[in-house]
Design a protein around this nucleic acid. Structure first.
Lengths: 232, 232
DNA sequence: AAGTGGTCTAGACCACGTC
DNA sequence: ACGTGGTCTAGACCACTTT
């Protein structure tokens, strides 16, 4: 019927998405298998596979060997967001970046940090710093660094080089955990951020590992009004 | 040298990641091209391509035709998070899901919602509802639905069927915008959520589109203590 | 002009999950 | 046992970007 010329996997992807969105294939329905679609589209099975795989990754299709491919009945859509370095985040807003170290020393790890980093050592490097946009507090960083994993950081002058940037370039990680939350500014936070006591602030906790070893665990508290945006 | 047997694209991916993480290939370095790696690994170029493409999608490699592939100097890592239906989110916590419609009627669209939905019509369906976990407020939903795009929703009894679930199954969308932020509970919000005035709450604004047409725009306000978690 | 990644093809075999 | 997706291969051509 419809004389659609499928010449690339993106063409196939568009056509399949169209069939899902137009509800020709409804949530829960099984769709034709790869061989049939390839025949219908007049292309190789590999091409159809690439398109189906891409859509399945976005959560709209569910694929199982033998059972086939079906339209997700309750699609759990996936969105991606980027984790830029703070300097770039600020510069992308056309603001001037600056940085101020608050304090930095090696000390005993509090139990909550120990629990989320799961490291054996008693001590770690604790860094507190402020990142500013146009001279105004943008984000407050409260960080612990596993010096067994990244000993070179002890030779870095953290008053001049910020840990966020240095670590990204010098301490690779294989995986990480991210938690976003809303927190109420306490008196210390309010003072540092120049905001009011009780303000609702956006916060990100991130712990990264290189293989089995924790690299760093950081809590970032953003200025009032910050929001995280993404699209799909 | 290293007699690594590369038999799958995942093997190639692991080997390449190892070379990046061990800093054999440093940030900013160009790495060998696909043909060379295929020869070294003793596999087809397609296999190497799949591995490199996967790593580039995660942000660790940058690829350009002719220029080649290099390790990202300041990797902008990408993380994905899932957008589950609220019922499932609650049931996955082993809590009992329930739902209460607060109000629902067709009325004039406020200017801020009109701006983010970019629709022509004067009126839209406004829904306010509460989703509960074990009988306690879990998330408050304040939603506008474009009835030109999804007229069938007018026939749905929203006292029994929640809009979140109904729309996911019945109103496909091609793309969307997501904004996460922290907000301070005002008196109305505090009353509805059973939290205290001034609490810092986590909030998500989401607008979805089907092609050119806005489908729905929703503000979700989560209970105190909620956080969004993801890992990579 | 030339080098690199991007993709397509046809065929093959494998792995998983259902029957 | 068998049907489906998952992947590999070798070769080919194309598209983009830099030189």
């Amino acid at each position: 019927m419809s004389a659609i010329a499928i010449k690339s996997w993106q063409d196939a992807e568009k056509e399949i998405l169209h069939r899902i969105n137009s509800r020709l294939w409804k949530p829960g329905d099984n769709i034709p298998n790869e061989v049939e679609l390839a025949r219908e589209f007049g292309c190789a099975r590999t091409t159809v596979n690439r398109a189906l795989r891409a859509i399945a990754e976005s959560g709209l299709l569910e694929r199982k060997r033998k059972a086939g491919t079906r339209v997700a009945p309750y699609p759990v859509r996936k969105a991606t967001f980027s984790i830029p370095i703070i300097r770039r985040e600020i510069e992308d807003r056309n603001q001037r970046f600056s940085y101020a170290l608050i304090d930095c020393n090696t000390k005993n790890i509090p139990t909550d940090i120990r629990a989320c980093m799961q490291i054996g050592a008693d001590k770690a490097l604790h860094i507190r710093a402020l990142y500013l946009a146009d001279g105004k507090p943008y984000v407050f960083e409260d960080r612990w660094v596993n010096v067994d994993e990244v000993p070179e950081i002890l030779n870095v002058n953290l008053a001049h080089t910020n840990a966020n940037e240095w670590l990204i370039s010098n301490a690779p990680y294989t995986h990480g955990d991210f938690t976003f939350s809303a927190i109420k500014a306490n008196d210390k936070t309010a003072e540092i951020m120049g905001s009011s006591l009780g303000d609702a602030l956006f916060s990100l906790n991130r712990t990264t590992w290189n293989g089995q070893q924790a690299v760093t665990s950081v809590k970032l508290i953003y200025q009032l009004g910050y929001n995280l945006h993404t699209s799909m």
